[in-house]
Simulated assay, not measured.
Amino acid sequence: MKKKILGVVMLLGILTACGGNSMSVVGAWVEPIPCMEGQVQGIKIEEGGNASSINMATLVYESWKRNGDQLILTGKSIGNGQTIEFTDTLEIITLNADSLILDNGEIEFHYAKQK
Rank of each mutant, 00 (worst) to 15 (best):
residue 53 S to I: 01
residue 3 K to H: 09
residue 89 T to R: 11
residue 31 E to P: 14
residue 35 C to K: 12
residue 14 I to N: 09
residue 23 M to W: 06
residue 107 I to W: 02
residue 106 E to P: 08
residue 85 E to Y: 06
residue 57 A to W: 04
residue 62 E to P: 00
residue 40 V to F: 12
residue 51 A to M: 01
residue 35 C to N: 13
residue 59 L to C: 08
residue 56 M to A: 06
residue 80 N to Q: 13
residue 88 D to Y: 04
residue 49 G to Y: 03
residue 4 K to E: 12
residue 80 N to M: 05
residue 59 L to Y: 04
residue 92 I to W: 00
residue 1 M to A: 15
residue 36 M to V: 13
residue 79 G to E: 02
residue 114 Q to N: 09
residue 98 D to K: 05
residue 20 G to Y: 10
residue 109 F to E: 02
residue 67 N to Q: 15
residue 37 E to T: 10
residue 34 P to L: 10
residue 70 Q to T: 13
residue 44 K to N: 12
residue 72 I to Y: 03
residue 70 Q to G: 00
residue 26 V to M: 09
residue 72 I to S: 07
residue 30 V to I: 15
residue 49 G to L: 14
residue 17 A to D: 06
residue 25 V to F: 10
residue 28 A to P: 00
residue 56 M to S: 07
residue 88 D to H: 12
residue 105 G to L: 01
residue 16 T to I: 04
residue 29 W to L: 10
residue 94 T to F: 03
residue 94 T to V: 14
residue 48 G to F: 06
residue 39 Q to G: 05
residue 36 M to A: 14
residue 25 V to R: 09
residue 56 M to T: 11
residue 89 T to F: 00
residue 90 L to K: 07
residue 51 A to F: 04
residue 67 N to S: 12
residue 57 A to T: 09
residue 19 G to H: 12
residue 9 V to A: 15
residue 107 I to D: 04
residue 22 S to T: 08
residue 33 I to E: 11
residue 16 T to L: 13
residue 43 I to Q: 07
residue 99 S to R: 14
residue 86 F to R: 14
residue 52 S to H: 02
residue 61 Y to P: 02
residue 6 L to I: 14
residue 78 I to A: 06
residue 105 G to Y: 04
residue 113 K to Q: 08
residue 19 G to T: 15
residue 42 G to L: 01
residue 17 A to Q: 02
residue 39 Q to T: 06
residue 99 S to K: 15
residue 36 M to N: 14
residue 13 G to P: 06
residue 80 N to G: 09
residue 57 A to C: 03
residue 50 N to F: 05
residue 53 S to W: 03
residue 17 A to E: 08
residue 81 G to P: 09
residue 40 V to W: 02
residue 86 F to W: 02
residue 35 C to L: 14
residue 36 M to F: 12
residue 24 S to R: 05
residue 16 T to N: 10
residue 102 L to A: 07
residue 105 G to H: 09
residue 85 E to M: 03
residue 104 N to G: 07
residue 42 G to M: 02
residue 67 N to T: 12
residue 12 L to Y: 05
residue 51 A to H: 08
residue 2 K to G: 12
residue 57 A to D: 12
residue 96 N to P: 07
residue 79 G to N: 09
residue 24 S to G: 07
residue 81 G to Y: 01
residue 61 Y to E: 00
residue 82 Q to V: 13
residue 51 A to R: 05
residue 28 A to N: 15
residue 75 G to D: 01
residue 108 E to Y: 05
residue 21 N to Q: 05
residue 58 T to W: 10
residue 69 D to T: 10
residue 4 K to P: 06
residue 12 L to H: 06
